[in-house]
């Protein structure tokens, strides 16, 4: 990326990016739900004017402990470097998103039987960028779409055996405290949202912030080099809050697009 690096960085300083956006404007993301027939819940995410970026599917099964796990894969061949990166992303998602979901809803018989939720994300576009943010969005939509079969658990008092009886209805996860992740990147001390692939090569550091519907900051992870001053952290938080409220405001339209006017 060396040839274009100076051009891209200068553009961000001047406030005009290579696709005509300002630094604090996201691309338009379109999401569709229930795309995979055999999954309990699924979503497909694409960026306006391009083919699907991500596919997310959820399957459930009954196990001993309530559990939510996430695995991210790249379609087609991927290098060791990409696989390592995906592993990093799944740890970030685990700490910022999955750990904040209330797992007590998944219990059937406390300490004996509970639902296990497996989230699988497939990255279709090999040039996909801004992955943390977009994977979190697709996961949130897939979770929202997820239908879990209604169950009743009994324990036979004499023998101590557990039974799980399936009822005819299904239930949905309480989405109230599920956060989304917003990634704020620093390129030469300028805050930039929703990077493209080319811009990704110019980033100094990235702060991932998880924020929930009520605007509460749930967690924060920093990647990359360099330090952030307290002032920068404060502005990062205000940008995240602004973006978060815009994202949650537009979720029901299945289109996510946000822009921060001033900081």
């Amino acid at each position: 990326m060396l040839s274009e690096k100076k051009f891209i960085i200068d553009g961000i300083k001047q406030g005009l990016r290579c696709d005509g956006r300002s630094p604090l404007v996201s691309r338009v993301v379109e999401i569709s739900q229930s795309t995979e027939l055999l999954a309990s819940g699924s979503s497909q995410l694409s960026i306006e004017l391009s083919s699907p970026h991500l596919i997310c599917g959820i399957k459930t099964e009954i196990g001993e402990k309530p559990e939510i796990s996430i695995s991210i894969e790249m379609a087609g061949k991927s290098s060791q470097q990409t696989r390592d990166r995906l592993k990093e992303i799944s740890t970030i998602l685990q700490t910022l998103l999955i750990d904040h979901i209330d797992k007590s809803q998944l219990l059937i018989i406390p300490d004996k039987k509970a639902w296990k939720v497996f989230i699988d994300v497939l990255i279709v576009d090999e040039n996909a960028s801004s992955l943390c943010e977009q994977i979190s969005l697709s996961v949130v939509f897939a979770l929202e779409d997820m239908k879990i079969i209604g169950t009743e658990g009994f324990i036979n008092k004499n023998t101590g055996e557990e039974f799980v009886q399936v009822t005819e209805d299904y239930w949905k996860l309480n989405m109230h405290d599920v956060p989304v992740i917003i990634s704020i990147n620093f390129i030469e001390d300028v805050m930039v949202l929703d990077l493209t692939e080319e811009e990704q090569a110019c980033v100094d550091s990235t702060v991932h912030i998880s924020i929930d519907q009520s605007g509460k900051i749930r967690g924060m992870v920093k990647e990359g080099h360099g330090e952030l001053s307290l002032g920068q952290i404060a502005s990062v938080l205000s940008v995240a809050k602004d973006a978060g409220s815009q994202i949650f405001g537009s979720l029901h339209r299945k289109i996510v697009h946000y822009k921060i006017v001033s900081t």
Binding site: L16, D19, G20, S22, V25, V28, E48, L49
Partner: peptide, 10 residues
Amino acid sequence: IDEILSKNSL
């Protein structure tokens, strides 16, 4: 310029 890459212009 910030709306040039959209469905409208396509």
